[in-house]
Measured scan of single mutants.
Amino acid sequence: MRDETLEPLPKNWEMAYTDTGMIYFIDHNTKTTTWLDPRLCKK
């Protein structure tokens, strides 16, 4: 489920979907991926 109230992704981040429809996030700065939304992981 998407939460439209979240702010935009940080610079150089992208949201993508797996072949089965699961959301993951791509950090183009470090060339890594994560299941965790970077907008929710702020310190």
Rank of each mutant, 00 (worst) to 15 (best):
M1E: 14
M1K: 15
M1D: 13
M1N: 07
R2F: 08
R2E: 12
R2I: 09
R2A: 11
R2K: 12
R2M: 14
R2Q: 11
D3W: 05
D3G: 12
D3V: 09
D3P: 11
E4D: 09
E4M: 10
E4C: 12
E4F: 10
E4H: 08
E4K: 10
T5W: 06
L6I: 15
L6G: 14
E7Q: 13
E7N: 07
E7M: 09
E7F: 05
E7S: 12
E7V: 10
P8S: 05
P8T: 08
P8D: 11
P8R: 10
P8G: 09
L9F: 05
L9P: 03
L9A: 01
L9D: 01
L9C: 01
L9R: 02
L9T: 03
L9S: 02
L9G: 01
P10H: 02
P10F: 01
K11G: 10
K11C: 09
K11R: 12
K11I: 06
K11P: 14
K11Q: 13
N12C: 06
N12M: 07
N12I: 00
N12Q: 07
N12K: 08
W13S: 01
W13N: 01
W13E: 01
W13K: 02
E14M: 05
E14Y: 04
E14K: 06
M15E: 12
M15F: 08
M15A: 13
M15D: 04
M15G: 05
A16R: 11
A16G: 09
A16E: 06
Y17W: 13
Y17C: 12
Y17L: 13
T18L: 03
T18Q: 02
D19Y: 08
D19A: 12
D19I: 03
D19M: 03
D19L: 07
D19T: 11
D19S: 13
T20R: 12
T20P: 03
T20D: 12
T20L: 08
T20A: 13
T20M: 08
G21A: 05
M22V: 13
M22Q: 15
M22Y: 14
I23F: 08
I23S: 11
I23R: 15
I23Q: 15
Y24D: 03
Y24V: 03
Y24P: 02
Y24H: 02
F25C: 01
F25D: 03
F25I: 03
F25K: 01
F25M: 01
I26Y: 03
D27S: 02
D27Y: 09
D27G: 00
D27K: 00
H28L: 04
H28M: 04
H28V: 06
N29A: 11
N29Q: 10
N29D: 09
T30S: 12
T30E: 06
K31C: 10
K31P: 01
K31W: 06
T32E: 05
T32P: 00
T32Q: 09
T33V: 06
T34C: 02
T34E: 02
T34L: 00
T34H: 04
T34Q: 06
T34Y: 00
T34M: 02
T34I: 00
W35T: 10
W35I: 06
W35P: 05
W35L: 09
L36N: 09
L36S: 12
L36C: 10
L36K: 14
D37F: 00
D37Y: 01
D37P: 08
D37L: 00
D37H: 08
P38E: 00
P38D: 00
P38S: 00
P38F: 00
P38C: 00
P38R: 00
R39N: 03
R39D: 05
R39I: 05
R39L: 05
R39E: 06
R39F: 02
R39A: 07
R39T: 07
R39K: 05
L40P: 09
L40R: 13
L40K: 14
L40Q: 14
L40N: 15
L40Y: 07
C41H: 15
C41A: 15
C41T: 14
C41W: 14
C41E: 15
C41D: 14
C41Y: 14
C41I: 15
K42S: 12
K42P: 10
K42C: 09
K42H: 11
K42L: 11
K42V: 10
K42W: 09
K43V: 12
K43E: 15
K43C: 12
